[in-house]
Computed example of a mutant assay.
Amino acid sequence: MPYNSVPVDTSHLPYCFSRLPVRIHRDKEEIQRFTLELVHATKTEGSKAHKHALYRHAVTGPDMNVYALSWCEADLDKMKLLIEFIELIWAHDDVTEEDPLDDAVSECEQLRRAMYEEYDNDPVADNGFGLRIQRFRDIRNRMKAVDAVGWIEIQDTMEEWLPIDTKLKEWESLEEYLDLRKVHVGNNVMTSFIRWAMGIHLTKDELVFIKDYTDAVGVWLGLMNDYMSWKRERTQPTDRVMNSVFLLMKKHNLPEEAAVDMVRGILVKQEGKVLEMSADLHGQAGLSTGMRAYIDNLEYYAGATFYWSLLAPRYAKPQSFDPTKAD
């Protein structure tokens, strides 16, 4: 049974096609306070990065901190370490969206090396990125000290995710796209955070056993992110569009509205698959306590991501935000 979270009332939403549960951490106010303090302490006031972060964490109600929603059963101290870690990852992700790909790949490799002590003697640039590398090393050490086994799992998933943009290409089919999209959306990284933050240690056999379900959640998250972010991405000039709406428009010569409706339909069908698989897993005998808690929290994470994406200004009002002109 959950012990750190409470349910979020979603009955007020004007429309909601998700049947996944939404819960939030009991310490949501403290988590929001810590998040904003970290943003102000690590980013120059008025800078583009500072405005991006504040906009990302703008809330439209008391139950809108993305961390308190996503890892609703996390230990609070671990949650704060995760927030430090994820804010650095998000800063890197902003770089890869804005910088030329070759520069992004170079910085990606430096960030990857920062996960390992053997590269700690590597020189770092005397700039904001160098400072992030130093902070990344410090957070790595603190997370590893708390749970070394869980950190190795995070390390492995980060190895897979950090260079993911180098695998983008012209997709032959939606199925081929979604096979990478479930990784690109960060599902394996984020679910390793669930286990680390809750002290859940699954065996290798258990991780293999749950993989099909985790992948199904990842496909749903990728489709959901595509659907929610399309309004934000549709006018952005880029040569690396990662969105199933764009793919369907291009591959099948569909008008935008038809492609959006098609993605929504596929998303609803995928959600049904996730819920069916979850029910089947819960019905199985012999699952460990950690496995059952993990299955529950995969649902909470997916439901929370939908809820936040539906209401966050980042997606709900994307065209109103220009980081170069933001107040």
Score class of each variant (00 low, 15 high):
L207N: 10
A285R: 14
F193M: 15
E109I: 14
G286F: 10
V189M: 11
R140T: 05
Y315W: 01
A302L: 13
W71G: 04
E117L: 10
I83S: 04
E175A: 14
G61V: 06
M242A: 15
A259W: 04
G283F: 03
T214N: 08
L38S: 12
A285H: 08
M228P: 04
W90C: 12
H40S: 09
A41T: 01
V260Q: 08
Q236N: 10
R232V: 00
Y15W: 14
Q236M: 14
Y300C: 05
N65H: 01
N225R: 06
K250P: 03
D165H: 10
R314G: 04
I139K: 02
Q236T: 15
V8N: 02
L162G: 07
M262L: 15
V241S: 11
K204I: 05
N188G: 12
D261F: 06
T10N: 04
V39G: 00
V146K: 07
G283K: 08
L81I: 05
A285F: 07
D122V: 10
I210S: 03
P100V: 11
W196P: 00
Y227S: 09
V217S: 01
V66Y: 02
G272R: 13
F246Q: 12
R23L: 08
G218S: 09
Q134M: 13
A68C: 09
L247N: 02
R140K: 12
L254R: 12
N127K: 09
H12S: 12
V274Q: 01
Y300Q: 01
F193S: 09
D280R: 15
P163C: 11
V185K: 05
E175F: 01
T235D: 13
V22T: 07
A293L: 11
P2A: 08
L310N: 09
A74D: 00
Y301W: 15
V149P: 04
A259S: 10
R195G: 05
I194A: 04
D27A: 03
M228N: 13
V245S: 00
L101G: 04
L76E: 02
N297S: 04
A58W: 03
